[in-house]
Design a protein around this nucleic acid. Structure first.
Lengths: 162, 162
DNA sequence: CACACATATCTTGACATCAAGACACTTTCG
DNA sequence: CGAAAGTGTCTTGATGTCAAGATATGTGTG
């Protein structure tokens, strides 16, 4: 009987006409996401990073050399709007972790590339990050994780196409 | 090979020393949460509500008569900080959907109660909300949903105690 | 070539959120 | 009873986000 079960119980009492079963699934995804972010933030903070800045630096780092993408590519990878990405890039540029260079192939655009400091920072931070993540999933067995991954993947596939 | 699989592939190429398997689970929870909120927002907007305002009104509504809780109780239910809750309450009060009354039993506190309009609005909005949620989980079979619920519940239980 | 349309990014303005701390009232305990 | 510690809520200041629209460059068509 966790928090979410309790919410369902309340609704069933108050509105027995409604089918609230989907609320359990969706509610737990929300709470889980919240708890995971809260936990991961502590690790990011050790490196002066946030969800937003880690996200951008990690996207550039895992891309491989030369560690550069356009703001548009970054937007697509990180699911934020253009205004948000502009803001993230401004903050990271101010911090000296990335550089903005004119895209030689398209005068409308830029390329965002990791600075030397940005590369070194993310390369170190990601090690601590994966350790934190390993800790966070440690309540599930390896089999359970595989099962969960598969279910989440299918759930997501159904949504993202629609 | 979804977006998350691709991220893992990139990391394994760039940093084969790291165990990035947990990133898949956590990353999918994040994307799933994002997609679900995006979809549910459309329904809330039809009633002039947002994630934040729906959350508060629904918490009061499912509580049952007399549809009142303290800001502290609301904070605990909704996982936000006190500043955020104060802000949410101010907005809803301005909109005439809730009322703030002095708590007769504790001079430090208040009780937040649904106004007549607030009650009617949430009682109608929640019907559309559960329909939207039913639609969102429709990509999974009933068995899969039960499995997923169980895994999410255990995952969450491991995190929230720690 | 010139005009219309498309695309990439940035700007603006409105909110939502958090952390930290302020403030008022309550409770506890000597 | 009165001081100290605890608790409930609000305030402040900094960020992050989005939607909508502005701006500049690129592309296609007649």
């Amino acid at each position: 009987m966790d928090h979410v079960d309790n919410i369902l119980k309340q609704w069933r009492q108050e509105r027995p006409d409604l089918d609230v079963a989907p609320m359990a699934t969706i509610g737990r995804v929300k709470r889980l996401n919240h708890a995971l972010i809260r936990a991961m933030e502590k690790t990011w903070a050790k490196y002066g990073l946030t969800d937003a800045s880690f996200d951008v630096l990690a996207t550039l780092r895992r891309e491989g050399a030369p560690y550069a993408l356009s703001p548009g590519d970054l937007m697509a990878s990180t699911m934020v709007t253009s205004g948000t990405m502009t803001h993230r890039i401004n903050q990271l540029e101010k911090a000296g972790l990335i550089e903005r260079v004119k895209n030689p192939d398209d005068g409308r655009g830029f390329l965002i590339s990791l600075s030397q400091r940005g590369f070194e920072l993310i390369d170190e931070a990601v090690v601590a990050h994966v350790e934190t993540q390993a800790q966070l999933v440690s309540g599930l067995t390896v089999d359970q994780r595989a099962q969960l991954d598969e279910l989440l993947k299918q759930f997501l596939a159904g949504l993202e196409q629609a």
